[in-house]
Design a protein around this nucleic acid. Structure first.
Lengths: 218, 218
DNA sequence: GATAACCGTAAGGTTGGCGTAAGGTAGACG
DNA sequence: CGTCTACCTTACGCCAACCTTACGGTTATC
């Protein structure tokens, strides 16, 4: 678990960080919103522990800003016992839970666990097409419950076709999708991938439009 | 916390509900078993507060019915001081705790907390996968009863794979999970960890998806 | 202060994905 | 019907991605 701890009081933060690290988590501790902001921009965390009173700004507005940016990382607020309104406000702005200071270290641990679990079984984006079940978020395909293993390139092609559902996708678009700049390829590599995809997913799933491109059969 | 309160005496129920709501819980109050039954069918609660004497039936049989349906939501019984046998009976039928009427509001709160903690710890945190038993909360793994010792990094990798169950997890995600910012590593350290994990947990638990990442074999 | 555990590194081995190309198929058009 | 051409299919071989292992540096443990 990768944890972002935003707390200015070292006396609180340090033991907490140590306790969580002893629990085999990776903790990154910042004392200002400014630092935390660049950290959360650059990296992915599994959970954020956010103190509301910080030297360089209000934790609540930070919270709103994060959610506005559509970052859905679970956030647990660290708040004083008497600041009931802060807690409510925080939950309303998209926090996932709160812990009251002074907190029990094990309680924080427990909250982190439940919050992470909650976010882990979030909805996964799955698409049903003919007898196939394609899950975009886990890169998995199955037919009649039987999982089908695709290679990286095959998946790349399928994903583009799925996203441009029912539209005719030109070969060039597909090639652009699976080859980075500079590693383009001459020859019929794409056609070979299409062929291999068909043999795995069913002969008539992918329809050819001569001279134009490919579509998925709905 | 989402709380289902089943209590017919408004004089008791109302202040309790208010007190719990002030503590930021969500309380849904029903005065009959019938209503409560449909509520618990439809929604998930974190804890149920159950009075045993209700106008439309016996709380104890309701309790049995819930447990028979394999609903494991923690249940706290609200009972009168002189009904000792009811309490024992309740606990035997699967209640998690009891509070004696007339109760102190803060005591109820405390009971709710401990009961929730307990249930969160025990049922959410152990995962069975193939012949392995993995406990997320205490970071232990065992195969056929034999404990297996994992190192910190090995555990970090395994935990992420477990949490993203059945998803293909890219190498970068795994690396991000076990290295804090600034202590990233060049070389195939991750591959080495995967290899060591496989030798400890079984050769085919972790499946490689070339160019994409790793998955756990279900 | 010695022993063990952990982990990054790199070397050497393995393999599956992928590009290639050759031969076949089928729409398009006259 | 014949020809052209875009596309299909298959086998093959290469190589990057990956695996495994040993080694040494560092840190934890007693």
């Amino acid at each position: 678990m990768r944890i972002l701890l935003i707390e200015d009081e070292a006396a609180l933060a340090r033991p907490l960080a140590e306790h969580l690290e002893a629990d085999l988590h990776i903790v990154e501790w910042f004392a200002t919103l400014d630092e935390a902001d660049s950290a959360i921009r650059a990296l992915e965390y599994d959970v954020v522990l956010l103190d509301l009173q910080l030297p360089d700004g209000d934790g609540l507005s930070f919270l709103s800003r994060i959610r506005d940016r559509n970052i859905r990382t679970p956030i647990i607020i660290l708040t004083a016992r008497d600041k009931v309104s802060d807690r409510i406000d925080g939950l309303n702005r998209g926090a996932d839970d709160y812990v009251i200071k002074p907190f029990d270290l094990d309680e924080v641990k427990a909250r982190i666990h439940t919050v992470c679990r909650r976010s882990a079984d979030q909805l996964t984006q799955t698409i049903l097409i003919r007898d196939l079940c394609v899950c975009l978020s886990d890169h998995s395909v199955s037919r009649a419950g039987q999982p089908i293993r695709l290679t990286a390139k095959e998946w790349g092609v399928l994903e583009v076709l799925l996203r441009r559902k029912s539209k005719i996708v030109p070969k060039e678009s597909l090639e652009a999708a699976i080859y980075a700049y500079g590693e383009e390829v001459e020859s019929n590599a794409l056609e070979a991938h299409i062929s291999r995809l068909r043999s795995k997913l069913g002969k008539d799933l992918i329809v050819t439009h001569r001279g134009m491109g490919y579509t998925l059969q709905p």
